[in-house]
Amino acid sequence: MKATHASARQLGLVSCHACHLLNRIPKVLGHAFAYCSRCGEELHQRKPNSLKRTWALLIAAMVFYIPANVLPMTITSALGTTQADTIMSGVIYFVTSGSWEIALVIFTASIFVPFLKFTILIYLLLSVQFKSIKRPKNRTRLYRFTEAIGRWSMLDIYVVTILVALVKLGFLADIEAGPAAIYFAAVVVTTMIAAESFDPRLIWDVVEEKHE
């Protein structure tokens, strides 16, 4: 692959977010909207308000993460007693009952992945805001990684909905979705949108500016 030595931004070109066609548009975009000449998608040199939006969504997700972990995810009632399980107590249940693989899967998907995503996104945001020029390639890789793993956090939500649906009538036990389920779903959705709002090209803009 032969590369030139300039970015689209430096040449006054905008790459369409949907179809990747390079569009030539006036250097100052102003507030007028421009659309891709091939697919009609709205053109942006960079994702609009990328840093602000990512921060806002990320902070919202971190706030939701607290009730998601503290409140019960499922409420099981059997023989007159009720038991509320948080995500963590669910993990511990699997460990004590001997299915440590499942415990590991749930712990990774529900607790570790969201936490990892918060950490990486904060690091990426700060690195861009403090105009870091260190290891841009690794940071781009980290971004790709966060984008790919976030969806797997949905796992526990699906497990809860399957349990609720399956253990309904006719059994001595009954499982209900706890309040944490909604918060947890909100964590997954907001972190996914947060990662989508971050524009990795900002990492490289800083590097290019330092070289100019």
Binding site: M1, K2, A3, T4, A6, S7, A8, R9, L11, L13, S15, H17, H20, L22, P136, K137, T140, R141, Y143, R144, P200, R201, I203, W204, D205
Partner: peptide, 27 residues
């Protein structure tokens, strides 16, 4: 074509029948 992740411009070579083209700057 501009890289979607770092915006570097690349010339598109004659298309091979299969295989991926990667960005020389960010991979």
């Amino acid at each position: 074509i501009a890289c979607h992740e770092c915006d570097l411009i690349h010339d598109i070579p004659p298309m091979p029948s299969r295989g991926a083209a990667c960005c020389v700057r960010c991979g």
